[in-house]
Design a protein around this nucleic acid. Structure first.
Lengths: 136, 136
DNA sequence: GAGCAACGCAACATTTAATGTTACGTGATA
DNA sequence: TATCACGTAACATTAAATGTTGCGTTGCTC
């Protein structure tokens, strides 16, 4: 599997689930489809469960299912659930004694926060129900 | 030095250069100030030289200097020179046979391209001449 | 309740990209 | 000509993500 693929894996899986919401899927099935490992799938989907997007059941007929209607899960929900950010929050040296460094951080982080907000707004405009449809 | 710090290193260095454009700085000086290694500095600044933002001179009084006035170098110039992008261009499997995957790529990459364009516009609004000033 | 299927999770291994380091060549200048 | 600084290649180190193994827990089915 390729790098930083948690978002890809999550969206891909939810996209398929949106097509057949009633069907429960095991992490082994999902892993086989995505070309990865069941434990990795549980790790990623576990975050979506914590965020209330998925449910998981143990036992014989267990597996993963959407926790609500696919029309009510947006790409932004998934993005936020995985807690990925465009930039690191940069909390190492809160007050570097270099004025250039300070000025740069202020300006750049302002821009990045705006951009991230913009990204989330854009992602919120698409639900996973729209993703499994072939038409654009 | 911390990770993915090429942009930080580049902006920081150019910010200082903007304050004293006439002064040439050696990679050793810059590395000491930034807490990293001279070779790393040359690697990063070498990209800025290729992009026409810096000049470097060998020999006794050699070192690095801005290739043009600091008012004419924007943060976007630096960002683009380093060839960093928000997302990988994802050119592995150009046509995956999974329709969900295809639909996702179309939508997500459209959004990301817009966001990236937006980011570059925002960065282009600030020059490195504005960064070394203490006032906001 | 025995057995099995599935998740939950911890511990460790592997991979990969970035960064750091060493070494040596080249050009410029005192 | 001795020295300083960049240019670059080769290799080492680090850190984050991903992959793997093992085992416990839960719930179903027989």
């Amino acid at each position: 599997m390729k790098r930083n693929s948690r978002l890809s894996l999550a969206l891909h899986t939810l996209g398929h689930m949106a097509a057949e919401p009633e069907r429960a899927r095991t992490s082994a099935d999902i892993a086989a489809h995505a070309g990865t490992n069941p434990v990795v799938v549980r790790r990623v989907l576990g975050r979506l469960r914590q965020a209330g997007l998925l449910t998981s059941e143990k036992g014989h007929a267990g597996g993963w299912q959407l926790a609500r209607a696919p029309q009510e899960i947006t790409l932004a929900d998934v993005y936020l659930a995985l807690d990925e950010r465009l930039i690191a929050t940069d909390s190492e040296n809160d007050a570097p004694n270099c004025s250039v460094e300070n000025a740069l951080r202020r300006r750049v982080s302002t821009v990045m926060q705006d951009i991230e907000r913009n990204l989330i707004e854009r992602l919120a405009a698409t639900t996973i129900a729209e993703v499994h449809k072939a038409e654009d």
